[in-house]
Write a protein that binds this DNA or RNA. Sequence first.
DNA 1: AGCACGATTAACT
DNA 2: GTTAATCGTGCTC
Length: 199
Amino acid sequence: MSNHFPESFFSRDTVQVARDLVGKRLVRLEGNQRISGIILETEAYRGEEDLACHCRAGRTPRTEIMYGPAGRAYIYLIYGMYWLLNFVTESEGSPGAVLIRALAPEEGKEKISQRRGNQPEKHWTDGPGKICIALGINADFNGLNSCTPQAKIFVENGQDLDPGLIHTGPRVGLESVPEPWRSIPWRFVVNYQHLLYGS
DNA sequence: AGCACGATTAACT
DNA sequence: GTTAATCGTGCTC
């Protein structure tokens, strides 16, 4: 009955999960209202050896969630201003997470428009901080299990994408991170146009 | 207890 | 292209 992606989807290699999440639908359940969008861009952060991942610091109060079971939301504050949404990956004990960086809004556009103020639709959810503003996601959602039927945030099937449309590249905003982590192609993105006009 | 910095964004010039 | 906004986190003293 439930169409929520199960823990087994997230409990895999982080890079593979990041790739597979592109084209899927992210849903925020707000009361009875669905606010959703097709995932257009993700990034993988995996392991203590990944110097761009928060887990480079090992187990700390903040990173503990990434060492736990997969499918949980990992949400943190960046620049003292914006919340960023990730989904925990890998088996328990192996830290990893996928950052959700961009969406194509589908349901609840009126609510999204309200939350995004005067921004044009093009910029409603084209960044990780913007997504959390648009969907009303904050620290209260950290650690929530997205795989339960009553989850307030979860992933379900979305667009069927030709794998050839998914582009890879270096993760964004890592200018001070040493190689090879700075340039490793763990960013996955599909062009919005492809979703608008079909694949 | 203090400090430097960041997986960003919006509003500038 | 440049820059201010703003604070939790992890590290050093």
